[in-house]
Design a protein around this nucleic acid. Structure first.
Lengths: 114, 114
DNA sequence: TCAAGTCATCGTATATTTGCGATAAACTAT
DNA sequence: ATAGTTTATCGCAAATATACGATGACTTGA
């Protein structure tokens, strides 16, 4: 039934999961890389780099935008995208915190088993 | 049609996306947290912590296992799970590298636009 | 004004994910 | 042996995700 019980999880868990979801497709990773590698906003060139149809790329851009990872600006007939570094940072920190906390807690316990 | 063109993306992109996918559900985040917080392998208690049916939790455990994030050991009638720290580290590093590289490249370019 | 371009959205098809109950498998304890 | 416990798997239903082509909206330039 796919009853998503997201309400039952903590805000942090949901947030991190949402972040991870935004990165959970190779096309979106590739898009982020492509955008980050430019000095200026990137417009149409993304479609040419990816092995996907224009409409599909647009969909992925929308997802990244929804996650807050990129900003889009309309510039004449084109649209320009660039990384939203604020969210990008937040992502990075969330992941790091998650990994570090897990490890720290585990090390505090000491014992191993498996 | 959902023709997954994963072959068209680089190995790194696919790998990172797969990692992200494993973390893209709050239940799996919660499971990892729960396991990491224990000194010993954890057995049945996971189901009690989560607001999900036993079969659903089992499915999520399988996913995490497939991703290499946790190890499972059969211990009598029970199964025990613990974090696979090797993979866990690899995850952590992959994400960090991705974030740092993107940022470094962008900073090398200097200019902003949006 | 009108053609050409760029990008978003719509509609559609298919694959995957998520979830649950029911059942099976495997061990323990009686 | 048998009943009970624990976990995995199966089967199903519904939601999401992925992908594409077609179409629409909008701007630019002739």
């Amino acid at each position: 039934m796919a009853i998503h019980k997201r309400d039952e999880f903590s805000k942090k868990e949901n947030e991190l999961a949402a972040f991870a979801k935004a990165l959970s497709h190779p096309a979106r990773i590739a898009i982020l890389k492509t955008i980050a590698a430019r000095a200026t906003c990137i417009c149409g060139e993304i479609v040419e780099v990816l092995p996907l149809a224009q409409s599909t790329v647009s969909q992925h851009l929308k997802e990244l935008s929804k996650a807050g990872l990129i900003d889009g600006t309309v510039d004449g007939p084109k649209s320009c995208y660039c990384i939203n570094w604020k969210t990008f940072h937040k992502f990075s920190e969330s992941f790091n915190t998650f990994f570090l906390k897990a490890k720290a807690e585990a090390e505090a316990q000491g014992t191993e088993c498996c």
